[in-house]
Each structure stands twice: as C-alpha cells, then as structure tokens.
C-alpha cells in the first residue's frame, strides 16, 4: 500500500525553509512515515540476555538501537504491548531518540537526580535503571492526570528509590538550590520532531505557540540549573525543531548564569546536525555549537534537540 504523504501548512513550510542545514523533502518523507516500534529492557527486573531470549522465544524480532544501551526495535505478529512481559514491566515502550536524554546525563549509582517534567515516566524509569537502585530519582510533573501515569509506570518498572512530586517545575531552583547531582529538563514543547506520531501537531502549530512556550522552557531550565549542585550536570532536551525553543533558551541560560557551561555531546551510531547559530538576526551564545540537533530523517524516528550543561564550581574557569 502506498504511504500517504503529509500536507503541511504554508506557515509551517515557511518556517521549516528558514532552518539552515535542513533537507525539507526528507523531513516531509519522514513525517509521513509512522515511528518505528521500540522498547527499552528493564534491567531492574531482569537481565538483557534473559529478556531477549524470552522475547525471541515468543516470536518477536529485535534489533539493537545502536546509540542506546538497552534499546531495541521490535516487530512481530503478537502485540508486545499486550504481552505478559510488558504487563510485568520487563520492557518499556519508548522512542529510540528519546532514550538519548537519560543516556547523555552521565548518571552514576548514588546520584540524586531530578527529572523536572517527568510524566509519563520514560526518562525517569530509564534514570532509575541507570542508578541501579542506589541514590534517588525525584520525578516531578505539574499535571495531576499525568502524575498518575507517571506513578503507574514507576511502579510497573519496580523503582524503589523514587519520589514523585506534583508541582510547577519552575519552583525547584528557589526551594531546593544546589540539591541534585543531575537534572533532566525534558521540556514541554511544540513537538515538531514527532509529527509522525500525530499529524495534528502540524495542523495546530503556529509561531505563537513556540514563542509562548519558550518562556516556560527558560523558566524550567533556570530552575533546573539552580537546583543543580556545583559540579553537577544537566540535560536540556525537546522534541521540536524551533530555535526559539532550543538554542535561544540555552543561549539565554548561558547569559543569565555565568557558571553554566556547555559540554560537547558525542553520540555514536546516529547522524546529528549542528545547531542553529543565528536566527532571524539574533546570534546565539558562541558555545551553542556544542548542542546537537537530530532530525527525523537522521534517526528514522523522532527529531530532538539536546544540550548538556555543567554547573561549574565557583572560581572554576
């Protein structure tokens, strides 16, 4: 059957054409394809070898996602989402590029980690698995309904060292300054990187949405940074392509907090694109080139933006 091709609005097309280094045709092709089905294996409940063997025994075809430790593309006649293994929490469905957020955070067992916008729990469960039940994961979200989903997923994953909080993430920096070793700000965004999942995103998008949401994103990023201990690390990620929600937000953090520094991000197994350094007459911070963009046609899945930020100790150059 021939794949239907998405039709984008003139406004969205005009915006996408403005992006440097983008292959618009490939992007529209990628938007028109469904996302691949992918899972992360829960090493809190089983080990990789055993889980892979059980899944293969049940007829599932698995292919390693090269840039992740625990991620696999999965296919098969049976619906894995309705299998015993999924219901027991041995596997977690998650987009392949989304898995990078926790992978890039350099989590070490024993860390105190804050996931500021945690629901429905994909990254928090991943962080919990990297903590290996040592240290603490604080998973926060502002929405009551979304926190229910988060709590269910943390339970199903078997996370014993978790605290789930229900509040505006922008308050953490003020209330709990210099408290966490690692912070993840996977910010709410206009979702232009995951249009394949929901074509409605493309229909609903407007410049205004990106402008408005970028203020919220900056508030969250500043709060997350302030909650970070000196020497701590933070990942800022979004699943969108708009520079106002990505490079502009990170650039402003670097202007506002002089002890915030960007680290280079090296990911093997996936093509990345350099970030936007200038947008509509505004030149971003000179270090912004250390962030990465991943376009849907680079990954064969979602589009994402990642920045890795370190909070320097006072006096550190």
């Amino acid at each position: 059957m021939e794949q239907r091709r998405i039709t984008l609005s003139e406004q969205l097309l005009a915006f996408l054409r403005e992006l440097p280094d983008i292959d618009l045709n490939s992007l529209i092709d990628a938007y028109s394809r469904p996302l691949p089905s992918s899972i992360r294996i829960n090493t809190l409940k089983t080990n990789m070898e055993k889980c892979l063997s059980l899944l293969r025994e049940d007829g599932y075809l698995l292919e390693k996602i090269p840039w992740t430790h625990y991620g696999y593309y999965v296919s098969g006649e049976e619906n894995l989402a309705e299998s015993i293994w999924h219901m027991l929490g041995l596997v977690y469905f998650q987009g392949p590029v989304s898995m990078l957020a926790a992978e890039l955070l350099d989590v070490e067992p024993g860390n105190h980690v804050l996931d500021l916008c945690a629901a429905p729990g994909s990254k928090s469960t991943h962080i919990a698995q990297l903590l290996q039940a040592s240290g603490v994961i604080v998973a926060n979200d502002i929405s009551v309904d979304r926190v229910k989903a988060l709590a269910s997923n943390m339970q199903k994953f078997g996370v014993i060292n978790s605290i789930i909080t229900l509040r505006d993430g922008r308050i953490f920096g003020k209330r709990y300054p210099s408290t966490f070793d690692r912070v993840l700000v996977d910010a709410p965004c206009s979702s232009l990187g995951i249009i394949s999942k929901d074509w409605g995103v493309a229909r609903r998008w407007s410049e205004r949405i990106s402008e408005r949401i970028s203020r919220l994103q900056l508030g969250l990023l500043l709060s997350g940074f302030d909650a970070l201990k000196p020497g701590g690390k933070m990942i800022y990620s979004t699943c969108t392509l708009h520079p106002l929600e990505n490079e502009a937000v990170v650039s402003e953090l670097l202007e506002k907090r002089e002890n915030a520094k960007l680290e280079n991000i090296n990911v093997e197994g996936i093509k990345t694109t350099k970030p936007v350094e200038e947008w509509r007459g505004i030149t971003f911070h000179p270090d912004i080139g250390r962030c990465i963009r991943i376009y849907p046609y680079d990954s064969g899945a979602e589009g994402f933006f990642f920045a890795k930020i370190v909070k320097q100790d006072h006096g550190e150059a």
Binding site: I163, I164, T165
Partner: peptide, 9 residues
C-alpha cells in the same frame, strides 16, 4: 520536599 505524591514502591 513539598508536594510529595508518592514514595518508593
């Protein structure tokens, strides 16, 4: 922490 919804398993 304030506004804790749940702890642990």
């Amino acid at each position: 922490l304030k506004k804790v919804d749940s702890i642990g398993l």
